[in-house]
Computed example of a mutant assay.
Amino acid sequence: MKRGITFKLPHQDGHFLADMLKPVDVAAYHWYNGGEEAYYVERKDNGDQSLFPEQVFGMDGAELKEIIGNHEYYAFFVDLKAFPKDKEVVNVETYEEYVSSDCQLVLLLADSVYVTIYCKNQAKLKALYDNAISQGYNKVEYVTDDNDARTGLSVW
């Protein structure tokens, strides 16, 4: 069974989280945000340069969509998990917890280039795969029951 996709990003700044999530209605979910390491390229108001300054349980999808779609940034580590708006947002730490939870999508970015996305909806997973190909990402592959070596759903 297909669990998700994995690919490599080019090492650059931009709107790549929004680009890789184009097939997903980001605003339709509440998000777990691991408060990982990502920074605005330029922040005109001299505010906090962190894209995600702290761990957030239940970040509104409209807010996340605005952050990742309307600002240039670079990211080293990102941990995002999508939940239906009427469900509790929790940090699922293993694939087994993910499967038994209400979490619908997990996005993990490590070392600025290595991306893994888990998605329960197979049609959306196919759309995410096709989008990764059309974006020109490298080494786009499905994560399956047979090839998934990940032991935890974290970037640390």
Rank of each mutant, 00 (worst) to 15 (best):
K2V: 11
K2I: 10
G4T: 12
T6I: 08
F7K: 04
K8Y: 12
P10Q: 08
Q12I: 13
D13Y: 08
D13G: 10
H15I: 08
H15V: 06
L17G: 07
A18D: 08
M20I: 15
L21M: 07
V24E: 02
V24A: 01
D25W: 00
Y29C: 00
H30W: 00
H30R: 07
W31A: 06
N33Q: 01
E36L: 09
E36T: 11
E37R: 08
E37P: 00
V41T: 15
V41D: 14
E42V: 11
E42G: 03
R43A: 05
R43V: 04
D45K: 05
D45Y: 03
D45G: 01
G47R: 11
D48N: 15
S50N: 04
L51E: 07
L51Y: 04
F52L: 02
E54D: 07
V56A: 03
F57C: 03
G58E: 02
D60M: 04
D60G: 01
A62H: 03
L64H: 02
K65Y: 07
K65S: 14
E66R: 13
I67G: 09
G69S: 06
N70T: 13
A75E: 06
F76M: 15
V78W: 00
K81E: 07
K81H: 05
K81T: 03
F83K: 00
P84I: 04
P84N: 06
D86L: 07
K87R: 14
E88W: 04
E88P: 00
V89G: 03
V89S: 02
V92Q: 04
E93F: 09
E93W: 05
E93D: 14
T94N: 04
T94K: 05
T94E: 04
E96F: 06
E96V: 11
S100E: 15
D102H: 15
C103M: 12
V106H: 13
L108N: 14
L108R: 14
L108M: 15
V113R: 13
V115I: 07
T116V: 11
C119Y: 06
K120T: 00
K120W: 02
Q122H: 06
K124N: 06
D130T: 09
I133N: 10
I133T: 15
S134P: 02
Q135G: 09
Q135F: 05
N138T: 12
K139N: 15
E141F: 03
V143Q: 08
T144W: 04
D145A: 13
N147K: 10
N147Q: 08
D148C: 15
A149M: 06
L153V: 12
L153P: 07
W156L: 07
W156Y: 12
W156M: 04
